[in-house]
Computed example of a mutant assay.
Amino acid sequence: MPVHIYSRDSLRADYLRAAAGLLLTALPLILVRPHWIVGLLLGAMALLFLLFLLRTAQRQVTTMHVDDNGIRAEGPMGKAVAWADLSDLRLRYFSTRRDKQKGWMHLTLKGAGKTLKVESSIAGFEDIVDRAVDAAKAKGLRLEPTTLNNLAALGFDAPGDPVTGDPGAGG
C-alpha cells in the first residue's frame, strides 16, 4: 500500500511564511501598545498566520494511504474516502503568477459525507490523482470542465470526458 507524505522541503516555504507573518503581526502587539483598531487588525492577522502554521504542521504529520479500497489520511483530523463511495472529484489549479506558470494543484475527493483534500506538494500526487480518476471512471462520475482541463494539464488523457468517454462533455 503506497504511503504519501508532505516532505519537509515542500513545507519549508510555508513554515517560513507563517513565521514571518507571525513576527510582523504579533511582535508589534507585544512590543508596543498600538491604537485599538490597529491592534485588532494585527491580532486578526496574527491569528490567521497562526492557523496557517498549525495547518502546515498538520500536513507534515499526516500520511496518505492509498489502496484498492480508497484513500485514508492518518494524522490529526484524519479522514478516509472509499473508492466505492466516491461521489465527487475536483482538481483545481491555483496560480501564483499572472502567466499561470507557477502554482499548485488541489485535489478534493468526496464520498459518504466526508471530504478529503490533497495538495500537489505531497510526494506521489499524480499517483493519487490516477487512482482517484480510475475510481471516478468505475463509478461513472461526470467531471467538471475545470477538472478535465487540469487533468489534461497533468498529462491524463482528457480530450473529452475521460470518465464517461463523451467527446463533447469536456468542453
Rank of each mutant, 00 (worst) to 15 (best):
A135F: 03
Q60N: 08
R98T: 15
W83C: 05
Y6F: 15
K139Y: 10
W36D: 07
V81M: 05
G103H: 03
F94K: 03
L11D: 10
D99M: 02
I128Y: 05
A80Y: 03
P167S: 08
D99E: 11
K117R: 15
V163R: 02
T25N: 00
A26L: 14
D127Y: 07
I30A: 15
R131H: 10
L40F: 10
L151F: 06
T96W: 13
R90I: 02
G124D: 01
L54G: 05
T62D: 09
T63H: 10
V118G: 09
N150K: 03
M1H: 09
D134K: 03
W104G: 07
L50Y: 12
P145W: 12
T63M: 13
W83Y: 05
R97W: 10
K110I: 06
M64L: 15
T164Y: 08
L50N: 02
L91V: 07
G43N: 00
A13Q: 10
K139H: 11
L109D: 00
I122P: 06
D88S: 09
S121A: 10
D68P: 02
K117M: 14
L86W: 04
K137C: 15
W36F: 12
L41I: 12
R59S: 13
L91I: 07
A158Q: 01
L54M: 07
I122R: 04
Y6E: 13
G168C: 04
V163W: 09
T25C: 07
A82V: 01
N149K: 12
G111V: 02
V66L: 13
L42D: 00
G78I: 01
L40N: 00
A80W: 08
P34F: 01
S87V: 02
T96R: 14
A46L: 02
S120Y: 05
L47R: 00
D127C: 03
W83R: 11
D134I: 01
R33E: 15
A73L: 11
A123I: 10
V3I: 12
G155V: 02
A138I: 03
F156S: 03
R72L: 12
L24A: 12
A46I: 04
T147E: 04
A169G: 14
E119G: 11
R98F: 14
M45S: 02
N149M: 10
A158C: 11
D14R: 12
L42A: 00
Y6L: 01
L148Q: 13
L148Y: 05
R17F: 14
I128G: 09
I128P: 10
A84F: 09
G70L: 06
G171F: 09
E74H: 07
V81F: 13
F49M: 02
G43L: 00
D9S: 10
A73D: 09
D88E: 13
E126W: 03
D134V: 01
L109Y: 03
A153H: 10
D166S: 06
P145N: 08
L27Q: 00
H4I: 02
